[in-house]
Amino acid sequence: MGMIAGVALTIAIFIYMFWPERNPFVQADKTRADYLRERKDAIYENLRDLNFEYRAGKFTEQDYQEQRTGLEDEAARVIAELESLERRGEFGRRSRA
């Protein structure tokens, strides 16, 4: 009796875990601000990685400065757009992209 219950429970778990959604292509709506926050976090992580790898000797000074400048410029653009959205109060709008 215990073995039957175990098999039934295992089957139920597999069905629950792998049952397909009604529409697997539906994604949660994200606001532009959500996207920008994620991008900002990724840029900061890339800057930390770049600093670590530079200190480990994987980059020349010139390459390090070029990549760092590019990441810092991109971070500045993202932060400026986030602040612009905040000033306009557009955090609730959903992006269509």
Rank of each mutant, 00 (worst) to 15 (best):
residue 1 M to E: 11
residue 1 M to Q: 09
residue 2 G to H: 03
residue 3 M to T: 08
residue 3 M to A: 07
residue 4 I to E: 13
residue 4 I to N: 13
residue 4 I to H: 09
residue 5 A to Q: 10
residue 5 A to D: 11
residue 6 G to D: 04
residue 7 V to A: 10
residue 8 A to P: 03
residue 8 A to R: 13
residue 9 L to S: 08
residue 9 L to E: 05
residue 9 L to A: 09
residue 13 I to V: 05
residue 15 I to P: 02
residue 15 I to L: 11
residue 16 Y to F: 07
residue 17 M to K: 06
residue 19 W to H: 09
residue 20 P to C: 05
residue 21 E to K: 10
residue 21 E to L: 08
residue 22 R to D: 11
residue 22 R to W: 06
residue 24 P to H: 02
residue 24 P to A: 06
residue 24 P to R: 06
residue 24 P to T: 01
residue 25 F to M: 10
residue 25 F to Y: 12
residue 26 V to T: 09
residue 27 Q to F: 08
residue 27 Q to V: 08
residue 28 A to W: 00
residue 28 A to G: 02
residue 29 D to P: 14
residue 31 T to L: 10
residue 31 T to Y: 12
residue 31 T to R: 10
residue 32 R to T: 14
residue 33 A to Y: 08
residue 34 D to M: 13
residue 35 Y to Q: 05
residue 36 L to D: 09
residue 36 L to W: 03
residue 37 R to V: 11
residue 37 R to A: 12
residue 38 E to I: 02
residue 40 K to P: 00
residue 40 K to T: 01
residue 41 D to E: 11
residue 41 D to N: 09
residue 42 A to G: 06
residue 42 A to M: 09
residue 42 A to W: 05
residue 42 A to Q: 14
residue 45 E to V: 02
residue 46 N to W: 00
residue 46 N to P: 00
residue 47 L to C: 06
residue 47 L to A: 04
residue 48 R to H: 11
residue 48 R to I: 06
residue 50 L to G: 04
residue 50 L to Q: 07
residue 50 L to D: 08
residue 51 N to V: 01
residue 52 F to N: 15
residue 53 E to Q: 12
residue 54 Y to G: 07
residue 54 Y to Q: 11
residue 55 R to K: 15
residue 58 K to N: 13
residue 58 K to H: 13
residue 59 F to P: 02
residue 60 T to D: 13
residue 60 T to P: 09
residue 60 T to Q: 11
residue 60 T to S: 14
residue 60 T to R: 12
residue 61 E to F: 04
residue 61 E to N: 11
residue 61 E to R: 12
residue 62 Q to R: 14
residue 63 D to M: 04
residue 63 D to Q: 14
residue 64 Y to F: 15
residue 64 Y to T: 03
residue 64 Y to L: 09
residue 66 E to I: 07
residue 66 E to N: 13
residue 67 Q to W: 03
residue 69 T to E: 15
residue 69 T to V: 03
residue 70 G to C: 01
residue 70 G to V: 00
residue 70 G to A: 06
residue 71 L to M: 11
residue 72 E to Y: 04
residue 73 D to Q: 12
residue 73 D to W: 05
residue 74 E to C: 02
residue 74 E to K: 04
residue 75 A to H: 08
residue 75 A to D: 12
residue 75 A to L: 13
residue 76 A to Y: 14
residue 76 A to S: 10
residue 77 R to V: 02
residue 77 R to L: 07
residue 78 V to K: 05
residue 78 V to T: 11
residue 79 I to M: 11
residue 83 E to V: 01
residue 84 S to Q: 11
residue 85 L to W: 02
residue 86 E to T: 05
residue 87 R to I: 07
residue 87 R to F: 06
residue 87 R to A: 10
residue 87 R to Y: 10
residue 88 R to T: 03
residue 88 R to P: 00
residue 90 E to P: 02
residue 90 E to D: 14
residue 91 F to W: 14
residue 92 G to Q: 12
residue 93 R to K: 14
residue 93 R to S: 12
residue 94 R to E: 13
residue 95 S to I: 01
residue 96 R to S: 09
residue 97 A to W: 06
residue 97 A to H: 03
